[in-house]
Design a protein around this nucleic acid. Structure first.
Lengths: 111, 111
DNA sequence: TCCATATTTCCATTTTTATGGAAATATGGA
DNA sequence: TCCATATTTCCATAAAAATGGAAATATGGA
């Protein structure tokens, strides 16, 4: 993952409404939720919701699927994983921490 | 970790300059780097650098230590780990993915 | 004390982001 | 076709974030 992509992804999550949307979709599972449902659940106005969903989609954090006149948004778990990997890579470069990146950054052992 | 704290932390990282600073400090190790060194390495003006360092510090992502007239900034690996945990928690709530959170969100197996 | 240097604060400016009303577009059902 | 509803786009406004010059503050050395 490139730095600019990481910034875009982080920026997409760095906002109350969008973080709520994403987390809602994460718990909703792969089938996702229709836009209206998300709006109901979070109390967000249609235009605002559409704006934020587009941001999340642009960042690749969510995907869409049309079903009748409903559009279902769902979390992109793979994109999330890429971000996590990016944040932990180069962690404690070399010594003295050599805990696998997947376990988190140095597991807090560095300081 | 609370949602608002997560947003603050994500926002701190969601900016080219700050992400560069943080990653530089991550690779620099626990001893950190003096402000001037960071500025040199990244080509950032003093006022701008100070602004971003304060943002990172406010978000708890970096710590400081004074040594003579130099101030050393260093990465807070524990804070980083908390953010990672927050982002992966509730991942694929219940079924059908039951991979440990530390391994990343569903390991991309959900979709 | 005086000086050199490290870092921060103050301030104005520019840029980006968030919000929601109203209108437009899309889809399926009657 | 016409209607009801789902979602997005357009637009203006408001709020927040980023930038860097210049001045202020802090620290150690001469």
């Amino acid at each position: 993952m490139e730095s600019k992509v990481a910034v875009t992804t982080l920026a997409a999550l760095a906002q109350e409404t969008r973080l709520s949307i994403f987390r809602l979709l994460v718990t909703a599972g792969p089938e996702g939720l229709a836009v209206g449902r998300i709006g109901e659940a979070l109390g967000v106005a249609p235009a605002t919701l559409s704006f934020h969903l587009k941001e999340l989609a642009h960042a690749g954090l969510v995907g869409t699927r049309q079903e009748g006149r409903f559009i279902y948004y769902s979390a992109n778990y793979a994109a999330m994983n890429e971000l996590l990997s990016f944040l932990t890579e180069n962690c404690c470069n070399g010594a003295p921490c050599s805990i696998p990146a997947a376990a988190g950054c140095c597991d807090g052992a560095c300081n």
